[in-house]
Amino acid sequence: MAIFNVAVTVRLQTEVNDPQGLTIQSALSALGFSGISNVRAGKLIEFQIEAASEDVAAKTVEQLSDNLLSNPVIENFEYAISTPTSNTR
């Protein structure tokens, strides 16, 4: 077994309106930052997972992202798994 670092990014689907992103965008323009457009706000969820291999870890990550971390009606997710931080315990 090995421990993997996982980062799941959850984004609103492109056709879904993002009130939070729009508000950030108008705040940025109010602060004088010009040329900013298409601001979208999402979520980053990081954790560690213990699994036999990276493939096994990836399967679990996909399952839990689909079941809980994202809502498929409005969101998409992608994830990155980094090389084991420690080996067999």
Binding site: L12, V16, N17, D18, P19, Q20, T23, N71, V73, I74
Partner: peptide, 11 residues
């Protein structure tokens, strides 16, 4: 029920 909730448009 079908659908999902987003933040209010006024946030």
């Amino acid at each position: 029920l079908p659908g999902a909730m987003l933040r209010n448009t006024q946030v």
